[in-house]
Computed example of a mutant assay.
Amino acid sequence: MNIAALQKKVKELEALITEKDRQIKELKESETALADANVRIAELFMNLEDAQESIIDQKYEIQIQNEELSENLEELTLINEQLSIAQTLNENLHKHKLQSDIIKRAHEKVLSSIHYAQNIQKSIFPSSKTLRDNFPSYFKVFYPKDLVGGDFYWTAKVNNKKILVVADCTGHGVPGAFMTLIAITLLERFVCVQKITDPKEINRNIDKAIIKLLKQETEKSNRDSIDLTILVEDDKENTITISSAKRPYLKVSNNEITQIKGDRNPIGDTTVAMKKFTNHIYNKEIGDRYYLFSDGITDQFGGPQDKKLGSKNLIKFLTSIQEKPFFQQQSDLEEFLNKWMKNQQQIDDIVFFGLELS
């Protein structure tokens, strides 16, 4: 091989080596680029993971915020409902206050009228002086259930006769009070004007007048009536005459109490057939006592067993105080009644009249 060929071969080898070096360099550069790319890819993956975690965190925060918003919305809805209820209540309260004011004013007017009616009713009842002039030794216990009532007492003197009336009209309160006005007006007419002093005749006349005034013959549903006890003391004949419509009364002689039944029929009320009014006549005996009373006292609930007082308990109590001075019996009876009723409400008007002959 000649030198020229050898040199050519050397050049080819050098070129080949140069090419290989270039390829090796490119390969190294590619490896470096690949390594850089892998690092970049790793960084991208890390950034992606961070982004995913951030997205998850943001999603969780958004979920929490949504829940808070939902709770706030529910709370706002509840507040709105409460405000609506409060507004309705306020409107109702305002209406109620207006109605309450109207009712209060109406109640005050009615109460004022009843107080006025009470004054009128008191004015037509006999005074203590009038009672004492006719019956020097007497006492009374008078407990209307309301400001005005249907029980009443009345007295008059005609010639030598002194008359005492104790009565119980149907109902209590204002209706009962109207009946007392009618009854007292009729007593004034028949006793004071027409001079009727026979107790049974007084009862008979008042009975007819009540039936006529209240139109009870045509209006059968109207059964208003009066339980009426009339006692007449006749100084000339020296007698006590009693006619009692529907009510018993008590007579005391020598400290022994006797209960006498009245006639079975009341004053008024046409549904009671075959009415009969009778007199019971007694000789006047100094020291004898008479007790006239309405059923309000015997019908009153109380005592240890919360039962009606009844006639037996009343008589038992009165028997226990017969040895005491007569003037003391009023306070004794009032104390007894208050203890009997205790916390029980009074159920009816009460009138009790005690009379001692002197």
Rank of each mutant, 00 (worst) to 15 (best):
N66R: 15
E67C: 12
E67F: 14
E67P: 07
E68T: 09
E68W: 09
L69E: 11
L69P: 06
S70M: 11
S70E: 14
S70D: 11
E71C: 10
N72V: 07
L73H: 14
E74P: 05
E74R: 11
E75N: 14
E75K: 13
L76I: 06
L76W: 03
T77L: 12
I79N: 13
N80K: 12
N80W: 00
N80F: 06
E81N: 15
I85G: 05
I85K: 08
A86N: 13
A86Q: 11
N90P: 00
N92M: 13
N92V: 05
L93V: 05
H94R: 07
H96Y: 15
H96L: 15
H96N: 14
K97Q: 15
L98I: 11
L98T: 10
I102M: 12
I102N: 10
I103N: 14
R105L: 10
R105K: 12
A106Y: 09
A106W: 08
H107M: 09
E108I: 13
E108A: 15
K109V: 12
K109I: 14
K109A: 14
V110M: 14
V110H: 10
V110C: 08
V110K: 10
L111S: 15
Y116A: 11
A117R: 09
Q118E: 13
I120K: 07
K122P: 02
K122Y: 09
K122H: 12
I124T: 01
I124R: 03
I124P: 03
F125I: 08
P126N: 06
S127W: 13
S128D: 11
S128P: 02
K129E: 15
T130A: 15
T130Y: 05
L131G: 06
L131K: 01
R132Y: 05
R132K: 15
D133V: 04
D133R: 12
D133K: 13
D133F: 06
N134M: 02
N134V: 04
F135Q: 04
P136N: 09
Y138Q: 02
F139V: 03
F139Y: 15
F139S: 01
F139E: 02
F139N: 02
K140M: 14
K140F: 10
K140V: 09
K140Y: 11
K140H: 11
V141H: 07
F142D: 02
F142Q: 02
Y143L: 12
P144H: 02
P144C: 03
K145E: 07
K145A: 06
K145I: 04
L147E: 08
V148I: 07
V148D: 00
G149H: 01
G150K: 01
F152M: 10
Y153V: 01
Y153R: 01
T155Q: 05
A156W: 00
K157Y: 04
V158H: 04
N160R: 05
K162V: 00
I163W: 00
I163L: 08
I163C: 03
L164R: 00
L164N: 00
L164T: 01
V165W: 04
V166K: 04
V166W: 03
A167S: 03
A167E: 00
A167V: 02
C169S: 09
C169Q: 00
T170F: 07
G171C: 03
G171P: 06
H172M: 07
H172R: 01
H172N: 08
G173T: 01
V174F: 05
P175Q: 07
A177V: 06
F178V: 09
F178I: 12
F178N: 01
M179N: 06
M179T: 03
T180C: 07
T180P: 05
T180F: 00
L181F: 15
T185F: 13
L186F: 14
L186D: 04
